[in-house]
Write a protein that binds this DNA or RNA. Structure first.
Lengths: 235, 235
DNA sequence: TGACGGAATATGTGCATACATATTACCCAT
DNA sequence: ATGGGTAATATGTATGCACATATTCCGTCA
């Protein structure tokens, strides 16, 4: 007979919630009570409940106790892979192409996004990523040279800006905004699509220590691009 | 002088990784060594490192020790809100409309998604969700009546199927697929858009205990719909 | 009646210790 | 050399204990 593990406690509590014995809003018995019931130490129960709280199943407050939360689906985890990995995973050959590189004053919207003044200049890149013979993504990127001065000396001919930035900067915050749009003439041309074709747009912004590093607009053919998010409820 | 907390240990290790003192691939000193250095118990170090591993900062293997991982951006968390909450958050009035309800044999693709046999019937719903005077989403949904027989008796006139399902079923797994498409004639009509306008499509599937409950195709006007994902690096 | 303060209580966390378990390293026999 | 068994080792986890801390409850006093 082995000792009761925190995993056992976790599983039993979760079972009671699943079966309805413990309904949303109910108070879970205290750690001491459960420790008595399971014949284990209070710390063991503590760990089980702490992990359930981390998984969003219950909510814990001192003195008030542990309550079962509404089974609102947790945030879904989206894997936002690097372009290269995404393409090579399908077996297609990945090819990167730098279309333009210049230092210029960004449009007002980008300046706002990067927290730049009205006359500040930034590095602008336009790239194209191929999956075999078809375009996978076109990338319109602005890099804040105040934060990443090293980028000024990189030509980005061989390495995509995203791969380079990931290596160069320990980015602390990333935001992705997903949307759908009709391709304008320029985008359609670069993607090899008819004007007006649906495109899947990802706008990515990254920060380090609260300072905006870069803003990228990534445009994909809508017909083929898919983004998958999975939510796994605990056990 | 208070005792060293696992939070202190966590912060210091994270600082060493940030500063480069511990680079990706490096082996973090063993728990015993760190416990000695910090003058705390090994269990305290253990908890700090365990949480860092949970956050994806380090990788732990018995006997092999703890290694610093590549700072690959973690999975981004997408908040997939309930339609009602999403709309009411903007201040607009939410209205739900049931357009069709029938029990029928689903198309082959849906049967496959729900794991149904060639002649199995399922509940089909078509709904429209309004945000004030504009259409926010049209919903095409199939519900597996083998798994949710109770849905047969629900008319879904007042409550949307998603709200009802969340309440009725303790779903264990959710999958969302995001994509962009051009609206076909029927969709454009229902959304009040021109045919061919870009739409943001979410396909949602949910399971309970490995059995598929429902499959929904949610279509939004591309011009207005946005989905935001944030990744927060640990402290 | 209502404001305030202290007691009661549930969770939060640290420590020393002991044992479990996975995995590597090494040594020995063939 | 080589294959396999075994010891060494780092992490994993359970326990009893002690104290910390947040929050609620309740009684007291104005």
């Amino acid at each position: 007979m082995s000792r009761t593990s925190y995993l056992d406690v976790k599983a039993v509590i979760l079972g009671r919630i699943r079966s309805g014995e413990l309904a949303p809003g109910d108070t879970v018995p205290g750690e001491a009570a459960l420790a008595g019931e399971f014949g284990c130490a209070r710390v063991t129960v503590n760990r089980a409940l702490r992990e359930l709280a981390g998984a969003g199943v219950v909510e814990r407050r001192r003195r008030a106790g542990t309550r079962v939360l509404d089974p609102t689906p947790r945030d879904a985890a989206v894997e936002v892979p690097s372009v290269r990995a995404e393409i090579e995973a399908t077996g297609a050959e990945y090819r990167y192409e730098l279309l333009a590189r210049r230092i210029a004053v960004p449009p007002r919207q980008v300046r706002a996004a990067l927290g730049l003044g009205p006359r500040a200049r930034a590095l602008h890149l336009r790239c194209r990523h191929w999956a075999g013979a078809s375009v996978h993504q076109i990338e319109e990127r602005w890099i804040n040279l105040d934060v990443v001065p090293a980028a000024r000396k990189v030509d980005f001919a061989a390495t995509g800006p995203n791969d380079w930035l990931i290596r160069a900067m320990p980015l602390s915050r990333v935001e992705h905004v997903f949307s759908a749009a009709n391709a304008n003439a320029a985008e359609a041309e670069l993607l090899g699509l008819a004007p007006g074709a649906a495109v899947f747009v990802v706008e990515r912004r990254t920060w380090i220590d609260g300072r905006a590093i870069t803003r990228a607009r990534l445009v994909h053919p809508g017909a083929t691009h898919r983004l998958v998010a999975r939510t796994q409820s605990p056990l």
